[in-house]
Amino acid sequence: MRIFDPHIHMTSRTTDDYEAMYSAGVRAVVEPAFWLGQPRTNPGSFLDYFDGLVGWERFRAARFGIRHHCALALNPKEANDPRCADVLDVLPRYLAKDGVVAVGEIGFDSMTAAEEEAFARQLDMAVAADLPVLVHTPHRDKAAGTRRTLDLVAASGIAPERVLVDHLNETTVDIVAASGCWMGFSIYPDTKMDEYRMVRILAEHGLDRILVNSAADWGRSDPLKTARTGRAMLDHGFDSDDVDRVLWRNPVEFFGQSGRLLLDDVAPDTGATFAGNSVLRGGGE
């Protein structure tokens, strides 16, 4: 089983996770920029984080045989803090970099005017940078937030096939399917979706334009949920080609629209360092 996890926050995870992910078949990931749990208070805090996503984290993942890409954005929650808004003036410089395969996560948290302004402005940046978009849908009032999301996407003029609307569930999948956007599902231990409900949705909707991710972060989450969903698909009667389509070919097709995926063979560990720092401590250094 080869797996591309299209939404996982590896900066919040350990090297044990990288090892377990590699063992389970994960060979590539996309890490979208998001909230760190502790609110940021200035643009510099975002920029150092972006530097880490295009630098250190890509290097760290490669040490474990995993290709790391990222999506960059001002996230919806922090779009509400005017002290952080100036990061949008610098964001286009970062959207031009190699390995940046989407603008994201953008979207709504509490559906405020500030969130809507940042969302619309970043949709325009995605068009200018020729990048697809990863849209977060809110935890609260999800159906209304998803409808408003689709309205803004339509108004921006970006092609729906370049938009991934994420964190969907049984109540929001139909309107996104009808919009022509890609549908993302985050499989969690006890919130959002689980792997068995995910299989029901795949059985009902088919495999077109559907991505499955672990969205693992600093909260209770499981970076192996992609693999567990693959096994649940096989148990249900899907074949291994169906699993490969959902867990590898679909994310490659969606993010491949950026023209910036880094999927040549991951080189074996050569004891390299990043900016003088290695990941492997102890005798290996």
Binding site: P92, R93, Y94, L95, A96, K97, D98, A129
Partner: peptide, 10 residues
């Protein structure tokens, strides 16, 4: 140059 310089290798 702000966006062309980073993209130049690609």
């Amino acid at each position: 140059v702000a966006t062309r310089f980073p993209a130049a290798a690609r």
